[in-house]
């Protein structure tokens, strides 16, 4: 792939792999396409975006609905993974 030319390009780019290396072992928010949110510690994930979380909390419409010690989330349901720790 060619180098992105021009301007503010010395600001670090961050590939998905780098992003993931930074967030593994840290608290994440995983949002599903259905709108359901999971918060937990990201154990690991694979190329399908299958995700293993620890200390998982399930939020539906912003309300805590369930807790799971460990949880496997099937990647096709995942909209995004966020490193933020913000709580609403």
């Amino acid at each position: 792939m060619q180098q992105p030319p021009i301007q503010q390009q010395q600001q670090q780019t961050s590939s998905p792999t780098e992003f993931l290396n930074n967030v593994i072992g840290r608290p994440v928010l995983v949002k599903l396409n259905s709108g359901v949110d999971y918060r937990g510690i990201l154990s690991c994930l694979d190329g399908y975006m299958n995700i293993a979380l620890e200390q998982t909390e399930e939020y539906v419409n912003g309300q805590l609905k369930n807790r799971y010690g460990d949880a496997f989330i099937r990647g096709n349901n995942v909209l995004y993974i966020s490193a933020t720790k913000l709580r609403e």
Binding site: Y38, D70, I73, R74
Partner: peptide, 13 residues
């Protein structure tokens, strides 16, 4: 069938 699965949670280890 796997395509319907959203989440799997094992018993607490």
């Amino acid at each position: 069938r796997g395509d319907g699965v959203i989440l799997v949670s094992p018993p607490s280890r």
